[in-house]
Design a protein around this nucleic acid. Sequence first.
DNA 1: GTCTATACCGGGATAGAC
DNA 2: GTCTATCCCGGTATAGAC
Lengths: 200, 200
Amino acid sequence: MPARASESDGLTRIERERRAQIIAATITLVAERGYPAASLSRIAQAAGVAKGTVVYHFTTKDAVLAAAYQQVLTSLVTHVAEQVETVPIRHAPQAYVRAMLEHLTGHPDHARTIVQVGLASAANGGRVRPPSQERWAPLATLLGEAVAASGRTVNTDKLRTLAVLVGGMIDAVVAEFLDDPTYDADAAAEQIVDLLTHEL
Amino acid sequence: MPARASESDGLTRIERERRAQIIAATITLVAERGYPAASLSRIAQAAGVAKGTVVYHFTTKDAVLAAAYQQVLTSLVTHVAEQVETVPIRHAPQAYVRAMLEHLTGHPDHARTIVQVGLASAANGGRVRPPSQERWAPLATLLGEAVAASGRTVNTDKLRTLAVLVGGMIDAVVAEFLDDPTYDADAAAEQIVDLLTHEL
DNA sequence: GTCTATACCGGGATAGAC
DNA sequence: GTCTATCCCGGTATAGAC
């Protein structure tokens, strides 16, 4: 009876421990020293295990980065979902924008990890980061529900584009903030919200 | 008399030829098969020279990518500048947006090269792509002149952010278009222009 | 001045020893 | 389940051929 998992993920206790340990090391490494520093050997060293051990638990380097990415992303998504649910549907998009920027600027290490891994994935043709279409699909849905709640109707294409535009604005503000920590991202968030409110 | 350059760049004829040849091969390679395919050996092979030859003319791989990046970027900047100059200052930002998306969607290979090299540079901490602040500084200037021409005044910070937001929207539309070539980028451009016009 | 061959080091992936 | 040995590939540096 080799230590069955307590949760329904088919992982043993030690497996979950090692994975968590390696993921944590990876996030720190990427956030502090950038993507290029996150080689398998360095990750292994930071986690206190051998290179092969990392590969054993994740089979590939991409999988390690993907796991780290997923972890910080889940934390982001959870936060945004919570915030969005506390407001009426017609104000959901605004809450979405605020929550995104709030979380990202409040956790620069997470933001850096998301950006670094996301960029590297895109540049390497990896599938860690979802394509543009999927990335902003939830926001498009939110926008659709918001206008519907206001009794008006908007062309589906316009909605899709609006989601893309708002998404792009969020990305850009995060990038600017990471480049220049003195940049007032909160004010930028309100500017996006204003723009969005005009549009809805 | 070893073949002085006809132009004032201190390059010999053969140097310019080889560089052009290698840069062209690089652009094609990056656009068609992505950044990871653009290794020195593959670039050399595609250009019909030895690996060392590429290094001889560019000293480093980053330099090759930077040169390719610069070439497509110059073509973009030139086009945008031309378009912007044909309209009165107060409509310059709108012309900027249209020209950017026009060129980028009209030359997907250029767009792909810019995106791929830009992303890789950002992910690798390289200095090929300028930081967010510099990227949209010209647009910010344009926006400032446009509002000034309309007689109104706008806070400098708001202007900076507006430039960042518009820049982000452009990036996002390009990304969406590259993901899905059936996406109507022209319509998206007009949506950005509308949004911008409200704001100015 | 132009180009090639070769060697070095570090990265990721695989096989197999323990 | 963990780790080492090994392999191949990528970028860089050097020596030297023409």
